[in-house]
């Protein structure tokens, strides 16, 4: 019995700093967003209760395209899972295997993460430039597009969404690579050696020895990648602006409605982002646990 109380005290002591941070900073925005989201409130006018009207509006009106934004971030999250993470994993496995210049490659591939998003945005703006950029000539040289100049960043264009997604996928490959590299390196060399002696090929070692032991790291990467996609904002804002329809993401809708003074709608967008991210995080956690 005595150990039980001392354990309770220990639990409280160890949890305390995190709880203070959590309740001091993170809980208030969640509660306030939830509360304001059911009010019809446009600054500077008074707010009136309106039930779920804000949510309804956000999913139906074309002016504040939350629905479009949700579809867009699902696409982004999907592409992160099938392109960004496998690429990062491939790089991490390649480097983790021990290759000449391992340290150099590791550092260089992490560079885009260190360079501020402002620069990345400016750079991609220039690369997308219809007649002076590199993307159009590059695609032309490999025959993907013809003579025409594609207006990648045209405000409501068909290509705007893709133009925003590509740099977002690219920017964090280095981050996930580093995370996964840590996972690869944490596999005991003896395990590898043993598998090799048993006649496994490099691929088989990766597939059956290394990757299964990286479960925790992969889980973190997937959660980071998916919630990061759902919350994505910076690059979309730089490349397409907060008023964009074609490349809308929930965060641009949130910022757009907030800057317009539609605080009720803005809070509702925040609630949608919170719910989506939470659901995704819980779901991913559960999926990884199931495969134990």
């Amino acid at each position: 019995m005595k150990r039980k109380t001392s354990d309770t005290i220990s639990i409280i002591v160890f949890l305390l700093p995190a709880l203070i941070l959590f309740f001091g900073i993170l809980v208030a925005p969640i509660i306030i967003s939830g509360y304001y989201s059911v009010f019809d409130w446009q600054f500077p006018f008074d707010k009136t209760f309106c039930g779920f009207q804000n949510y309804k509006k956000l999913f139906t009106t074309e002016w504040y395209p939350l629905w479009k934004g949700v579809k867009n971030v699902f696409l982004l999250a999907g592409l992160s899972l099938v392109i960004q993470l496998p690429l990062s994993l491939g790089l991490a496995l390649m480097l983790g295997r021990g290759i000449k210049g391992e340290r150099f490659f590791l550092s260089v591939n992490f560079l885009p993460v260190l360079i501020s998003t402002v620069v990345i945005g400016l750079l991609w703006r220039r690369m997308y430039d219809a007649d002076a950029g590199v993307i159009n000539p590059l695609l032309r040289s490999v025959g993907i597009i013809g003579e025409e100049n594609i207006q990648w960043l045209a405000a409501n264009g068909d290509h705007l969404l893709m133009a925003c997604i590509v740099p977002m996928l690219w920017q964090y490959v280095g981050y996930h690579m580093l995370l996964m590299y840590a996972g690869v390196k944490s596999v005991a060399p003896e395990l590898r050696e043993a598998a090799m002696i048993d006649g496994a090929t490099t691929w088989q070692v990766d597939r059956f020895v290394v990757i299964p032991s990286m479960k925790q790291v992969l889980k973190v990467s997937v959660i980071f990648s998916v919630t990061g996609s759902l919350k994505s904002y910076d690059l979309v804002s730089i490349l397409a602006g907060d008023r964009t329809y074609a490349a809308a993401v929930p965060s641009t809708v949130l910022m757009n409605t907030k800057s317009v003074g539609l605080y009720g709608m803005s809070s509702a967008s925040a609630v949608v982002i919170i719910v989506l991210c939470f659901a995704a995080a819980v779901l991913i956690n559960a999926l990884f646990r199931e495969r134990d």
């Binding site: 995190a18 959590f22 001091g24 900073i25 993170l26 208030a28 925005p29 969640i30 306030i32 967003s33 959660i223 919630t227 919350k231 904002y233 965060s251 949130l254 910022m255 907030k258 803005s266 809070s267 925040a270 982002i273 919170i274 719910v275 989506l276 991210c277 939470f278 995080a281 819980v282 956690n285």
Partner: peptide, 20 residues
């Protein structure tokens, strides 16, 4: 509960933060 923290968009925390 702690996972909720990943979900909060920074933008909605500004006014509560100013007041806190």
């Amino acid at each position: 509960m702690f996972m909720l923290g990943i979900t909060v968009p920074v933008q909605v925390s500004l006014v509560p933060l100013l007041i806190t």
